[in-house]
Amino acid sequence: MREQYLAPNETMQIHELLNLKTICMTTSKMMEGVVFDQDLKALLEKDVQQSIKSIENLQRLLNKAPKLR
């Protein structure tokens, strides 16, 4: 069976999504420290956990990108 690789434009788009999710996660994590409302803190923590899962999934996708030699 033939291995499937990502096209160069797909690889670039996944990199862009990865950058966006990383920035969003970092922002939510930083905001947790300055927020006093417990409900909002819980939402921010949930966002961080979901972002971590998304980042891991995007990193797995990047493993399908062709390797440069």
Results as ranks from 00 to 15, higher is better:
residue 46 K to I: 06
residue 54 S to Y: 02
residue 22 T to K: 09
residue 47 D to C: 11
residue 3 E to D: 11
residue 35 V to D: 03
residue 5 Y to C: 03
residue 44 L to H: 02
residue 18 L to P: 02
residue 28 S to V: 00
residue 45 E to T: 13
residue 8 P to L: 01
residue 22 T to A: 09
residue 46 K to V: 10
residue 12 M to F: 05
residue 25 M to V: 14
residue 44 L to A: 05
residue 31 M to K: 14
residue 19 N to T: 13
residue 34 V to Q: 11
residue 27 T to Q: 08
residue 1 M to I: 06
residue 23 I to F: 05
residue 31 M to V: 12
residue 46 K to D: 05
residue 62 L to K: 09
residue 4 Q to L: 13
residue 66 P to S: 10
residue 68 L to N: 04
residue 17 L to A: 07
residue 6 L to V: 06
residue 64 K to Q: 15
residue 6 L to T: 03
residue 9 N to W: 05
residue 29 K to I: 14
residue 61 L to F: 03
residue 51 S to L: 00
residue 31 M to F: 10
residue 49 Q to M: 06
residue 45 E to C: 09
residue 41 K to S: 07
residue 3 E to G: 02
residue 46 K to P: 02
residue 51 S to R: 01
residue 20 L to Y: 11
residue 41 K to D: 03
residue 47 D to K: 10
residue 32 E to P: 04
residue 19 N to E: 15
residue 19 N to H: 07
residue 26 T to V: 12
residue 17 L to G: 06
residue 39 D to I: 13
residue 51 S to T: 08
residue 5 Y to F: 14
residue 51 S to D: 11
residue 65 A to Q: 07
residue 36 F to E: 09
residue 58 L to T: 04
residue 22 T to F: 00
residue 27 T to P: 00
residue 67 K to C: 07
residue 64 K to W: 12
residue 26 T to R: 09
residue 22 T to R: 05
residue 67 K to Q: 15
residue 18 L to D: 04
residue 29 K to S: 13
residue 35 V to T: 12
residue 43 L to I: 08
residue 61 L to S: 09
residue 14 I to W: 01
residue 57 N to E: 15
residue 17 L to K: 12
residue 46 K to G: 03
residue 23 I to A: 15
residue 68 L to T: 13
residue 16 E to Y: 06
residue 11 T to N: 03
residue 29 K to T: 10
residue 2 R to V: 10
residue 38 Q to N: 09
residue 20 L to I: 10
residue 4 Q to T: 10
residue 11 T to W: 03
residue 3 E to V: 11
residue 61 L to G: 04
residue 52 I to S: 03
residue 29 K to M: 14
residue 13 Q to P: 05
residue 57 N to T: 08
residue 31 M to T: 13
residue 22 T to P: 04
residue 1 M to H: 15
residue 26 T to Y: 06
residue 50 Q to I: 02
residue 57 N to L: 05
residue 42 A to C: 07
residue 22 T to D: 02
residue 66 P to H: 06
residue 52 I to N: 10
residue 61 L to Y: 01
residue 54 S to T: 12
residue 10 E to M: 02
residue 49 Q to E: 07
residue 41 K to G: 01
residue 69 R to S: 15
residue 8 P to V: 01
residue 40 L to V: 15
residue 10 E to F: 00
residue 40 L to W: 02
residue 67 K to D: 12
residue 12 M to V: 06
residue 57 N to M: 10
residue 51 S to V: 04
residue 56 E to Y: 01
residue 64 K to A: 14
residue 54 S to D: 11
residue 15 H to A: 02
residue 67 K to A: 13
residue 33 G to P: 04
